[in-house]
Design a protein around this nucleic acid. Structure first.
Length: 292
DNA sequence: ATCGGGATTGCCT
DNA sequence: GGCAATCCCGATG
């Protein structure tokens, strides 16, 4: 157990930057931190990932809870207008099932102009504005009106650009964000990867500017490394607020909110996990962060 | 036409 | 840990 903890801490994304022009531990090109280097898109182009790593439409054809967990360890890629590629590993998601799930925008099958993407084919991006100033990004799954909210990423590539994008809303002169603070929240990741509202209803399986990849350098996810906890920010929805439909990688430093109670209950070997509907156990092809 | 709330964040004490 | 920021969307009259 203690060994596990040490290993997890060792992969802290906020660790001190390596020397410039080195590959990091994930084999991804690390950028220099100096502003002068930000202007060179070539520095952000990775040859490490190849086309075969992109996830196609079949991947998204899974029930919502299953897809929410299958996303963990996968890499979200954003190709900017100048060719720069930003990459982050998904470490935290939430499932919004629609139908009975009162906390979902599509509860009761309600379909509006805003949430149309939730009803489109699995893999469709749903971007909606929240609190007037932020966005959240979801991906539709199998199931009428069901979608997965992306909550946190581990920044892998393009951190200086992410930092620049995130700094736009911050008070001038405030301290520089650590790497692990760049994408540790649903709206933070939209800022850091420049996910705009107009990405709503695009197809994550085919879009040229945003897609998902498997990480060829990691092993399949161990289900014991996935924590299931109640979702965040929906307290007004009674019993539905208590469903353990938030999923995150145990011990990962980029998770937005750690739930110690849930971590105890979903400890390896503990079988009593109330995961609700029956589509929970059918994950396939998962990959996880490398634990070396 | 108006009104109330929201799947959040950052800064303050 | 409290709370303001800020505005779009959907519901209601």
């Amino acid at each position: 157990m203690a060994g596990r903890k040490r290993k997890l801490l060792a992969l802290a994304a906020g660790a001190a930057p390596e020397k410039a022009a080195n590959k990091n531990k994930h084999g991804v090109f690390d950028l220099m931190e100096s502003p002068a280097e930000l202007k060179k898109p070539a520095d952000c182009e990775s040859h490490y990932f190849t086309k075969k790593d992109r996830l196609g439409e079949d991947f998204f054809q899974q029930p919502c809870l299953s897809l929410s967990k299958a996303f963990l360890g996968k890499i979200l890629v954003r190709r900017c207008a100048d060719g720069t590629e930003l990459r982050g590993r998904i470490v935290e998601t939430e499932a919004y099932l629609g139908g009975e799930d009162k906390a979902s925008h599509s509860a009761g099958g309600k379909r509006t102009e805003r949430n149309t993407a939730m009803f489109m084919q699995p893999g469709t991006i749903y971007v909606y504005p929240i609190y007037g100033i932020y966005f959240c990004m979801n991906v539709s799954s199998e199931g009428e009106g069901a979608a997965v909210l992306l909550r946190s990423l581990e920044p892998l590539q393009g951190q200086p650009i992410m930092r620049q994008l995130r700094a736009a809303r911050r008070k001038e002169g405030s301290r520089q964000l650590k790497d692990k603070e760049l994408c540790n929240g649903p709206s933070k990741l939209c800022q850091a990867l420049d996910i705009p509202r107009c990405f709503d209803r695009r197809d994550l399986a085919t879009d040229p500017e945003v897609w998902l990849e498997r990480d060829p350098s990691t092993n399949p996810t161990d289900p014991n490394d996935i924590v299931s906890a109640p979702r965040i920010g929906i307290e007004s929805h009674g019993e539905w607020a208590r469903k353990p439909w938030r999923f995150y990688l145990r011990g990962h430093p980029c998770v937005s909110v750690v739930n110690k109670e849930a971590e105890k209950q979903s400890l390896p070997g503990n079988v009593k996990n109330d995961l609700g509907p029956s589509d929970v156990q059918s994950d396939t092809g998962q990959h996880n962060v490398k634990r070396t």
